[in-house]
Computed example of a mutant assay.
Amino acid sequence: MSKMSQLLDKAKNYVTEKIGEMPKPTASITDVDFKRVCRESVEYLAKVNVSNPYSTSIPICEINYSFKSAAREIASGIIPDPGSLKASDTTLLEVLVKVPHNIIISLAKDICADWDIDYQLDIGLIIDLPVIGNFTIPLCQKGETKLPSLSDMFV
C-alpha cells in the first residue's frame, strides 16, 4: 500500500470517528391520544419532543409513521417537510395518525370489553444533519388508547 493510500485511510478513519462522536438530536414520544372523529377516519395525535444540541436550526426532511394493533398495521403515512428543529432547544412535533373507520370497526369487534386498543406506534424522524446528511431517529411506543365513543362521533 502506498503512503498516500495509508494517509487517506487514516484521514477517513479519523473523520468517521469524529462524526460518530458528534452529539446528535434526540427524540421521545411523550403522548398518544384520541383527537377526533372525522368523515373518513378516526384521528389520534402523537406528540414528539426533539432536542437539538446544535446552535443552528436543523431541517426535518420528513416524518414517517406506522400505527399497529393486534399485530397488524392499521395506519401508516408520511408527513413531508414538517419544518425544522429550533436551535439549541426542544421542538414539539405533532404527528396526526388517521385510522380508517373500517379498521376501527373491525378492532371494536375484537375489543368490545374495555373499548381500549393496545397499539404500537413506530415513527421515523428524518433530519438533515450538516456534514452527515440525512439521519433517521427511530422511535417506538407501545400503549393503550381509547376507541371513540358514540358521543365523540357527534361532537
Rank of each mutant, 00 (worst) to 15 (best):
N49I: 13
Y119S: 12
F154R: 13
P130I: 03
I117N: 04
E73G: 01
V99K: 04
L107V: 05
D116T: 12
I104R: 01
W115H: 12
L139Y: 08
E94A: 00
D31V: 09
D116K: 12
V32A: 06
V95K: 00
V48L: 09
D114C: 08
K10V: 02
M22A: 15
I63H: 02
I29F: 07
V37I: 07
M153Y: 03
L45Y: 05
T90S: 13
S55C: 01
E144R: 13
I123F: 05
D116G: 06
F135W: 14
I58D: 12
K12T: 05
G20S: 15
I127G: 14
K47M: 09
S149R: 11
C61D: 13
L147W: 04
K12W: 05
I104Q: 04
I63P: 09
V32E: 07
P130H: 04
L92V: 12
L96T: 02
T136H: 06
F154K: 14
P25R: 11
V95D: 00
G133L: 08
L107A: 05
I123P: 15
R36S: 08
P53C: 02
T91P: 02
V97Y: 05
D152T: 08
D118K: 11
V37T: 11
S88P: 02
Y44Q: 03
G143R: 04
F154M: 14
S28C: 11
T91W: 03
D122W: 03
I132F: 12
K18W: 13
N64K: 05
D81S: 05
L129M: 13
I78N: 04
T56D: 11
C38Y: 06
D116Q: 14
I137H: 08
G83T: 02
G143A: 03
S76W: 01
D33W: 04
L139M: 09
K18I: 15
G77Y: 00
I103P: 05
I123H: 09
S55E: 03
G77A: 01
L121N: 10
E21Q: 15
T16Q: 14
V32Q: 07
R39L: 09
I117Y: 07
K146L: 12
A27H: 14
P100L: 04
E43R: 03
A113F: 13
I105S: 07
E40F: 10
L93R: 00
P148F: 02
I60A: 00
N134F: 15
K98T: 01
L107T: 11
R72N: 00
